[in-house]
Design a protein around this nucleic acid. Structure first.
Length: 376
DNA sequence: CAAGTGGGTAGGAAACGGCT
DNA sequence: AGCCGTTTCCTACCCACTTG
């Protein structure tokens, strides 16, 4: 007989193990009725540890999990969470998070006050910091999303902190992971280092992404900047979510009168945490330095017309479809107002009557350019 | 030896049901 | 109506073993 053919429930070891787990569950029940998220997480941690270790030490094969699921479900019909599927999550939960070290967990959250939150505890047999952190803040289903989709330690910690900070729902967390927020956050090209004082410059940098994903927009070609703006406003909830925490919508086509002339800002926000106005200009084209000059002018105008004593200097965000990194950095160098440039993406659909027709001149040209024997 | 086969693990999508 | 925890179903893949 192969080892995996052993009926796990027939061995004394298994029976003993099962008794242990049952005892723990009863204990946990008394302690806090398992419904409390924190206790649940800690219990899952313990259970996952037990499952993981026991499976390693024995040759029962993973069918034990099926068996355990049945045994526990029949013993405790009132308690959910002993399904085969969930026990797999529990096991993975322990195995993944036990590879985190405590020192890794204390990543600086925009202050450095996290260390002081956690009082020293007896080291051995205690759940590590990461579990305490999760247990106090994240529901189980959020953890499953992370277990499912994130493999990297730093990335995991990033999403855990962001979820706690922003109060993301499960679906929002899933969305942010899917759109790969981790590698977009703070990536915009800006001149904040030279135009803003610390720590304002770091905060502002962290508040900007590159690219912004406006995939909830579906625009039928051809469309212009005003079309994009219209749709952004009609999906204002998703728009604000993608912009990130702290942006409060002030107005669109915001009117400014400078001297004899009228000017209109595409989108105007106020950032609660940065305590400053944020001017967003949309360009449905590639970035060119002239845009930065124009935005610089708008920022000066807002600073003198809207900004009060208490407000920090106004920040500009230029959203364009494409940009050259070197060129953009160069263009921002001589701008004296704080400003960042990001790309944005959206969903384009072709109008019905054009689908399948011949490519445009531009498309042919860009295809040809792609074929040119240039070095990469 | 290579291709086929079947058991088993794992993950994703979607639905369900409880809760507020 | 939205959120959350859980389950169900489906699919991909791995591995050992068999069969031509």
């Amino acid at each position: 007989m192969k080892p995996t053919d052993i009926q796990p429930n027939a061995t004394p070891e298994y029976t003993h193990w099962l008794q242990e787990i049952k005892a723990k569950i009863k204990q946990a029940q008394v302690r806090a009725a398992l419904a409390a998220s924190r206790e649940l997480i800690l219990f899952y941690w313990d259970l996952g540890k037990s499952i993981s270790k026991t499976l390693q030490e024995n040759t029962w094969g993973n069918k034990v999990i099926d068996q355990l699921s049945k045994d526990l479900a029949s013993e405790f019909p009132a308690i959910k969470g002993f399904s085969r599927r969930n026990l797999y999550y529990v096991k993975k939960f322990y195995e993944f998070f036990s590879s985190f070290s405590d020192s890794e967990v204390i990543v600086p959250r925009d202050g450095a006050q996290l260390e002081n939150d956690i009082e020293p505890q007896p080291k051995e047999q205690m759940a590590p910091l990461i579990i305490n952190l999760i247990g106090s803040h994240l529901p189980w289903s959020h953890i499953k999303i992370i277990l499912d989709k994130v493999k990297d330690h730093r990335e995991t910690l990033f999403y855990i902190h962001e979820t706690i900070e922003n109060g993301w729902s499960r679906d929002t967390l899933a969305l942010q992971i899917k759109s790969n927020l981790y590698s977009r956050q703070g990536m915009a090209i800006t001149n904040f280092k030279t135009t803003l004082p610390e720590p304002q410059s770091d905060l502002a940098q962290q508040s900007m992404k590159d690219p912004y994903c406006f995939d909830f927009l579906t625009l039928t070609t051809p469309y212009n900047e005003r079309d994009i703006e219209n749709q952004l406003i009609s999906h204002i909830t998703k728009f604000l979510l993608e912009l990130g925490k702290g942006f409060a919508f002030v107005g669109r086509q915001y009117h400014l009168e400078v001297g004899e002339s009228d000017y209109y800002l595409d989108l105007l926000f106020y950032h609660i945490k940065l305590k400053c106005y944020v001017v967003v200009e949309l360009k449905n084209t590639k970035f060119i330095p002239e845009y930065a000059g124009k935005l610089n002018f708008y920022l000066s105008a807002v600073d003198s017309l809207l900004k009060s004593e208490a407000d920090n200097p106004t920040i500009g965000i230029l959203l364009c479809r494409d940009k050259n990194k070197i060129e953009t950095e160069f263009a921002l160098r001589d701008i004296n107002k704080p400003m960042g440039v990001s790309e944005f993406t959206l969903t384009e659909t072709l109008p019905e009557n054009l689908k399948g027709s011949l490519p445009t001149i531009e498309e042919i040209e860009s295809d040809l350019q792609g074929l040119e024997p240039e070095s990469e």
